[in-house]
């Protein structure tokens, strides 16, 4: 599904990714771990096309096609979703309107008809139940005045609504208490199918107690320095990252 080949990327002229190679297949869950400043969030931003970052070398293929030159909204239409580490507030725009605009624009770029009002409301209800989201949240403005936990849950709700092929979850567990992590993880697990894939970017092993990864990668100084299975995460928890450097 996703193939990243020798990816170099920089922000404001400073190179952050220094040759990342990664392959993600359908049905797989990958965890990317690593110390602060290793380039984890940059990787998520570059895959989703954040214009603040520049690809200087290498290629990102999604379903066999290079997406290097695609705009962020085009990548979204291909089926790539990012759960933001810091979800953005959009005052005055209700979640309902936002989701409707999102779904219809994605449909439009795929050459599909807009969703009908009743179909949309049904879908909202279903997905809210699935991830156990308080129905009041969708009547509020996008992320405005949401608590940290509500924001993260709202990201998973959007993921459920948009049903992406590839979901990248950037530090979805950070700032959450253990109950919130469990709820978010349950949501992610329920959304997992043999046809989609996800990349979990995380600092700590604890999220991986709830979402079991098929692969664990360690990103350090802009490169993947080690790949293993879920045992690697436990090892990292115990030993830290220092033994992998150098």
């Amino acid at each position: 599904m996703l193939q990243i080949k020798n990816l170099h990327a920089s922000v404001n002229g400073k190179e952050i990714l220094k040759g990342v190679n990664l392959t993600v297949n359908k049905g797989e869950v990958h965890a990317i771990m690593g110390p602060n400043g290793s380039g984890k969030s940059t990787l998520a931003s570059v895959i989703t096309g954040n214009p603040a970052f520049e690809i200087t070398k290498g290629e990102i293929l999604f379903e066999g096609k290079s997406i290097n030159d695609l705009a962020p909204e085009e990548r979204a239409a291909e089926g790539i979703f990012l759960s933001f580490q810091y979800p953005i507030e959009i005052p005055g725009v209700s979640m309902v309107n936002f989701m409707r605009a999102s779904i219809n624009d994605l449909r439009k770029s795929r050459g599909e008809e807009p969703i009908s009002a009743s179909e949309f409301l049904k879908l909202m209800r279903k997905k809210k139940e699935l991830i156990e989201m308080d129905s009041q949240l969708t009547n509020r403005s996008v992320n405005e005045g949401f608590s940290g936990g509500e924001k993260k849950k709202n990201e998973i709700f959007q993921m459920a609504m948009l049903d992406p092929k590839l979901a990248i979850l950037d530090e979805t567990d950070s700032g959450l208490d253990i109950d919130a992590i469990r709820v978010v993880a349950n949501g992610v697990n329920k959304l997992k199918t043999p046809d989609n894939a996800s990349i979990l970017i995380t600092h700590y092993q604890r999220l991986l107690d709830y979402i079991i990864p098929d692969f664990v990668h360690v990103l350090s100084d802009g490169k993947i320095v080690k790949t293993g299975d879920k045992e690697l995460a436990l090892e990292l928890e115990e030993k830290g990252y220092d033994w992998l450097k150098g």
């Binding site: 705009a71 979204a76 605009a101």
Partner: peptide
């Protein structure tokens, strides 16, 4: 950030 957030959700 607001623009990118919308873009990421498919909104141009």
């Amino acid at each position: 950030d607001q623009i990118f957030y919308c873009n990421q959700r498919g909104i141009d």
